[in-house]
Amino acid sequence: MATVIVDDHSPLVQYNPPGGWLSEGSSIEYMRTTMSSMVLGSTATFKFNGTSIAVYGTVVGPNYQTTMDFRVDRILAGFYGPAVTAVNTTTYHQLLWTSDVLVDGVHTLVITQNCSIQDRILFLDYFLYNTTSTSDETVFIDDDNPIVEYSAGWENLSLNEYFQHTAHVSSELECWVSLTFEGDFVALYGPVTVGSDGNSFNASVAIDRGSPGPVFSPAQELPPGTTTYNQLLFSSLLSPGSHTVVVTNLDGTDLYVDYFLVRASSPTHATSASVLPSSVWPSPTVNPMGGSQTGQTTKSFPVVATVGGSVGDRKNFLIRVEDPS
């Protein structure tokens, strides 16, 4: 059983009515995208093959309204009513709803906006579903997953900005993290804190006991001490099969682990192993699971512009999307 992640902007998710949903997003959110609606009766429909599913999003408070209900195979399975908060807060990676255990097979989830609201307060971000059928799917492996192994010297952290609200950090020389998986692609994401010299961390990655190569810190033109989240630390294209990746802290600066993405392989994606530093691999605005070619985008929803606002002012942070065809 594996956990597959699907972005809100995946073409597998169908939104109705046309124009009833708006595309937004920030760097903290998965693939830097979300979808929201203020229209009574608007729906998001997603068909999946699995045994359970969960829906995650971003919530802006305070809020007193029930805003969405969830139906699986036309049966009402639950609803989301945001908790009341005293101040205007933004919660990322919030679990909106999770299903009961389902019969293994194909199911249809329909999310319905069940009231008309005056402001966007609830944003769909991503789906996680458990399945035994993972070929060519993007498998999500959180830092807390027991298949991720850590040496001594790692600390478990909890923060709103982390996926599943957890991450691990190492600040000791030669601390390592290891993941063994079946697939033909792996990527590691985590927070990055800018050091006093402008650098963020110094680490190496080794795959299948091969010679270690450097992990390049994403470019950061920010003041020392600034932390950015959901940063791609490294990715690698591999031949299909079983692989082990080991990332090692080389100098004792803070090295974070938030989550791994793995593509469950099929024979059509065979390629030689190569480690792609974040300086050449696309940012989370581009879907790295779309194919084996570096820089290939998701056809329907590539981000082409970011407009105004800060992360703290959620309603003014907009992303325009276009179909390049």
Rank of each mutant, 00 (worst) to 15 (best):
I111S: 05
W154L: 08
N160Y: 06
E155M: 10
P18Q: 11
G198T: 06
F181Q: 03
T43S: 03
S265G: 12
A77K: 12
I5T: 09
I75V: 15
Y30L: 02
V6Q: 03
T253R: 13
G81K: 15
H269L: 10
T244F: 02
P302Q: 10
F70E: 02
V60S: 04
I141W: 04
N316K: 12
S170K: 00
S279H: 13
S37W: 02
V101C: 02
T297Y: 04
T66W: 09
P223S: 08
N199R: 12
I111K: 04
K299R: 14
G153E: 00
K299S: 13
G61V: 04
G308D: 14
N114K: 11
Y56D: 00
F201Y: 08
F48M: 04
T131P: 13
M35S: 06
P62C: 08
A2H: 11
L95P: 08
V13W: 00
G195M: 01
A2F: 12
T91Y: 08
L159Q: 07
L12M: 12
D208Y: 09
L95Y: 13
F48N: 01
S300V: 14
P302N: 07
A187P: 02
A152R: 15
S217W: 04
G25I: 00
S200A: 13
L261A: 10
E137G: 07
Y189Q: 05
G241I: 10
P214M: 15
W281N: 06
G19K: 08
T34L: 06
D136K: 08
T45M: 07
A83F: 09
T112D: 12
T248I: 05
L222F: 07
S239N: 15
V246I: 13
L102M: 08
T193N: 04
L128W: 09
L12G: 12
S236E: 03
S279V: 11
S151A: 11
G198Y: 07
L122C: 14
S283N: 06
D313T: 12
T228C: 03
D8Y: 00
E182G: 10
L222S: 10
E221Y: 13
Y129L: 06
A44Y: 00
G295T: 06
D143G: 06
E24C: 11
A264K: 09
S239K: 14
S26C: 14
T85H: 07
H9K: 14
E137W: 04
S196G: 07
H243K: 04
T112M: 05
I28E: 04
Q65K: 14
D142I: 09
S239D: 14
P240F: 06
C175L: 01
V103E: 14
A2M: 08
F163G: 10
N160R: 11
F260K: 03
T34N: 05
S99Q: 02
T253Q: 15
S279W: 10
A206H: 04
V262P: 01
V246Y: 03
S239W: 13
I117W: 01
S171T: 05
D8I: 09
D136V: 09
A2P: 07
V280Q: 06
G309V: 07
E24W: 13
D142W: 11
L238W: 02
G25V: 02
G190L: 03
V148A: 09
